[in-house]
Design a binder for these strands. Structure first.
Length: 564
RNA sequence: UGGGGCGUCGCCAAGCGGUAAGGCAUCGGCCUUUGGAGCCGACAUUCGCAGGUUCGAAUCCUGCCGCCCCAGCCA
């Protein structure tokens, strides 16, 4: 291993933290490569999700760490499924995550001419043939795990005939499915991928970049290895399910005697509890309107997480913490939340917001009087400064912060008890006002003028501290509380994932009372609503109708105690 | 009954023949004008199982067991 041998070079390795970095460092140390070139190769047929973030972080991270580069390459070889909407969103998401491909943005479709030439070369070498078998027949001829496949009757066509047929395929003389170009490898291979895989099929679909120039399109394996080679990729990092394809990946490069031969390395894709990651399922959630769109804050998509208020830093940190290995794994969602809180705790402004308001009248506070208190913006960061918060005779506190019959260990307001209003005064509950139905509608309390600022000369202790908002100054807002979209840790295992949706994944609260300073918060702004959680101004929030999304709640020790 | 992978604490994951890192979660305690944050402590005599090699094995060998992926003209 080469941890110190080249320590004086600019690509000096540090301690590798995963097996892929070990491989890269080994190749750099042995001189196999002098620089590293990786690529992130999404198919533009869906939005990027947190699983892609793992791959992006790995590929761009390795490139940055070893002084190389990482390409963004769209694997757009199937015009039937792909769309520009997706290439746009993918670029936006990669940038948002914090990575830069510089000039290196490519499309597999940029290489269609070269790929076509490689296919012709394969035919000329007698290594590819046009097969007229139907898709069903091809499947039958392919054999089974225990039986070898049988050669297609068209396998031994002459080079000239294959050249002619392939050209006619290109010209559009045949219908979709009529024939396909296959490589001649080994119909008896125990690896299905080598049983004469198709490399070109007819698709009379308009391509989002090449339009109607082509009606034949290369298949993934063929296009991918050659695209990697064309770009000078050194390490082609992909997920485990492509391990079986590696012999094929290598075969194209060997047989075509290409000037370089990238190395494919596979790692385990990310699994996350309480979420589904398959594009098919995510598409279904969007198409069937189960969520509001690809950027619904409950989606594991990067656009959803962005709208939810997750930061790029926290997602990158998460990808760093989960590691990279070849063991199939499902990471606890709580680790992601931990990363989000860790980041937001350090830098989000604290603010007071009452989500479920309960009116409190401070009977001994002068009517019409307004005071302003100085409130710290972030106890973790004194440099964040302070702000003024208005206080008056009528305020709102959280309904949960009052209990007429307090359970054990309840450190909040109840009849006759005293609490502190954050940054303001101590108040004692003197009277509980109820409506005809017996519901508490208002509290009448008295404050201790001596407690201004939150402490008293006698140094007496209070039960706890509550957040509050001055009623006449409050900003009304809508607040959306999010929870897991699914109610079970492994929704992917359900026969129908729709049966395991979490009915409480979205709770919309109206008439929430926010600190007036929140007026005009621009979409995307993040705050910590004191004692409750981190919230983000929604993308659709306006001055006349402010909307905040709960990114993640604060850890709730009381909830744990109350459960017992 | 074919091929390719993987099995270390509830979840990730280090470990690469010298006697089980770390993070999340969990459970205690301290502290606190957020029941937040922070701090302290507990948390695998054992590495899927069984043999073997060795002074010594999670690490090497053999066998077994379990899980994942592969029969698209998808990627």
């Amino acid at each position: 291993m080469s941890t110190s041998g080249t320590s004086s070079s600019p690509t000096a390795p540090s301690v590798p933290t995963d097996f892929i970095r070990e491989i890269v460092e080994g190749d750099l140390a042995s001189g196999k490569h002098h620089s590293v070139v990786t690529r992130f190769p999404p198919e533009p047929n869906g939005y990027l999700h947190i699983g892609h973030a793992k791959s992006i972080t790995l590929n761009f991270g390795i490139a940055a760490q070893y002084g190389g580069r990482c390409h963004l390459r769209f694997d757009d070889t199937n015009p039937a499924k792909e769309d520009v909407e997706y290439v746009d969103s993918i670029q936006e998401d990669v940038r948002w995550l914090g990575f830069d491909w510089g000039e290196h943005r490519y499309f597999a479709s940029d290489y269609f001419d070269q790929l076509h030439q490689f296919a012709v070369q394969l035919i000329k070498s007698g290594l590819a043939y046009v097969d007229d078998l139907s898709p069903e027949q091809i499947r039958e001829f392919r054999g089974t795990p225990t039986e070898p496949g049988r050669p297609s009757p068209f396998r031994d066509r002459s080079v000239a005939e294959n050249l002619d047929l392939f050209e006619r395929m290109r010209k559009g003389e045949f219908d979709e499915g009529a024939c396909v170009l296959r490589t001649k490898i080994d119909m008896a291979s125990p690896n299905f991928n080598l049983r004469d895989p198709a490399i070109y099929r007819i698709k009379k679909a308009s391509h989002h970049r090449t339009g109607d120039k082509w009606c034949i399109y290369p298949m993934y394996d063929f296009a991918h290895s050659l695209s990697d080679m064309i770009e000078g990729i050194t390490h082609s990092i992909c997920t485990l399910e492509f391990e079986d394809h590696r012999p094929l990946y290598d075969w194209y490069l060997d047989v075509l005697k290409t000037p370089s031969h990238p190395q494919q390395v596979e790692f385990a894709r990310l699994g996350l509890t309480y979420t589904v990651m398959s594009k098919r399922l995510l598409l279904q959630l969007v198409r069937e309107g189960i969520v509001s769109g690809w950027d619904d804050p409950r989606m594991p998509t990067l656009s959803g997480m962005r709208r939810r208020g997750y930061t790029p830093q926290s997602i990158r940190r998460f990808c760093e913490l989960i590691g990279v290995s070849k063991a199939n794994s499902v990471v606890d969602f709580s680790l992601l939340e931990h990363c989000v809180r860790e980041d937001l705790n350090a830098r989000s402004q604290r603010v007071m917001a009452v989500l479920r308001p309960l009116k409190v009248v401070i009977t001994n506070y002068p009517e019409g009087q307004v005071e302003e208190f100085e409130a710290e913006n972030n106890p973790e960061d004194p440099a964040a400064g302070t702000r003024k918060v208005p206080f008056s005779r009528e305020i709102f506190i959280e309904q949960d912060d009052f209990a007429e019959n307090p359970p054990p260990k309840y450190f909040r307001l109840s009849p006759g008890k005293e609490i502190r209003l954050k940054h303001a005064y101590y108040i004692r509950c003197d009277e509980v006002v109820k409506d005809a139905a017996g519901r508490v509608t208002e509290l009448r309390c008295s404050y201790d003028p001596q407690s201004r600022g939150g402490s008293t000369p006698d140094g007496r202790k209070v039960l706890g501290t509550s957040h509050w908002v001055s009623a006449p100054h409050a900003l009304d807002a809508e607040v959306r509380l999010y929870d897991h979209l699914f109610g079970v840790p492994d929704p992917g295992a359900a026969d129908d994932f729709k049966t395991v949706l979490n009915p409480g994944s979205l709770e919309v609260l109206d008439g929430c009372k926010l600190e007036p300073g929140l007026a005009g918060a621009v979409p995307g702004s993040r705050f910590q609503f004191l004692r409750q959680g981190y919230f983000c101004t929604d993308a659709g929030s306006t001055g006349s109708h402010p909307v905040f999304n709960r990114t993640v709640g604060l850890k709730d020790t009381w909830a744990k105690i109350a459960r017992k």
